[in-house]
Computed example of a mutant assay.
Amino acid sequence: MEWSAGAVARMLGISPTTLRTWDRRYGLGPSTRHEGKHRRYNDDDVVRLKRMVELTASGVAPASAAASLTSSGDPDFWAAADELDAARMRRVAVGLIARHGVVHTWDAVLMPFLVELGERVSATASGVEVEHVASLSISDAMRVSGAAAGVPSVLLACAPEEQHSLPLDVLAAALAERGQASRNLGARVPATALVSAVKRLAPEVVFVWAHDRVHADQVPLAELAGTHVLVAGPGWEDVPLSGDVQRVGTLAAAVETILNRI
């Protein structure tokens, strides 16, 4: 099948102007050419554009989303993941971070990789071992990419019983890259432990990650009053927040918000 630009825009629910912008800026244009006629989008073009819409809707910057699509991620990382080669995945990730920075590497390569891998696991009910090894390798890469010196003024924590701590490692690395030290409490931080840590360390910003609503509901937000609190993750999407608690949707937004509050 082949489609005109107008048909593709209607199919994806975006404006023709957005479609033209993505073509001009990122090379996400139609592949099929007919002499004397307008270019047409083929099936592969539409699939790629659908993924672009999904990534940008989830908060990924358009440039990073396009980079992940036009490069198909990093083939070395995928190959290492398929072989469960944790050391190689770590080396590839560290190299990407050194060349492109934490935020771009996460947005353009690592997060799209994890999303696609998760979709494969859901569709085939296999590959969980790849997902686990890859996540650990990415965490290791974030930790070895550098740490900022100085007194930590940012406290990072997962909600009680929340086990998805990789986002904390990524944020810590992104902050360190900008010269900001942080303290990472990791996964499954009990409510009492979080409150105790805040009292003991007196951080300027507290960041709490929750992948599930049931975990987000256990975070003692009222007891953290007086501290800048940022929350992130799918678990917070429908949680009512008071005026002194702010939800951030992307890694870049989290970094900039934290740096602006310190």
Rank of each mutant, 00 (worst) to 15 (best):
R261L: 13
G235S: 04
D82M: 05
V214N: 10
A148G: 12
D23V: 01
T17F: 00
A61N: 02
S153G: 11
G150A: 13
P30S: 09
I97E: 00
L224P: 10
L259R: 15
A148F: 02
H215F: 11
D43T: 11
V115M: 11
L156Y: 08
V133K: 12
V133R: 15
R99H: 06
A225L: 04
H228N: 13
P234I: 10
I262G: 14
V198Y: 09
L171Y: 08
L194R: 00
I262M: 15
E237W: 01
Q163E: 07
R10D: 10
L84G: 03
N260R: 12
S68V: 00
R20C: 05
L168A: 09
A193L: 07
A87D: 15
D45V: 00
V53H: 08
E223Q: 14
V206G: 02
S137N: 09
L12P: 02
H132P: 08
P190W: 10
R20G: 02
A149D: 13
V239R: 15
W106D: 05
P30G: 10
E256K: 08
V170I: 13
A176R: 02
R213C: 13
M89I: 08
W106K: 00
A63K: 12
W78K: 14
S71K: 11
V208E: 08
A5K: 12
A147R: 15
L224I: 08
P220R: 05
Y41S: 01
G186Q: 09
T70E: 02
G233K: 11
L259F: 00
L156H: 09
W22K: 03
L114T: 01
V102N: 04
V195T: 06
T21A: 15
V151G: 08
V189I: 03
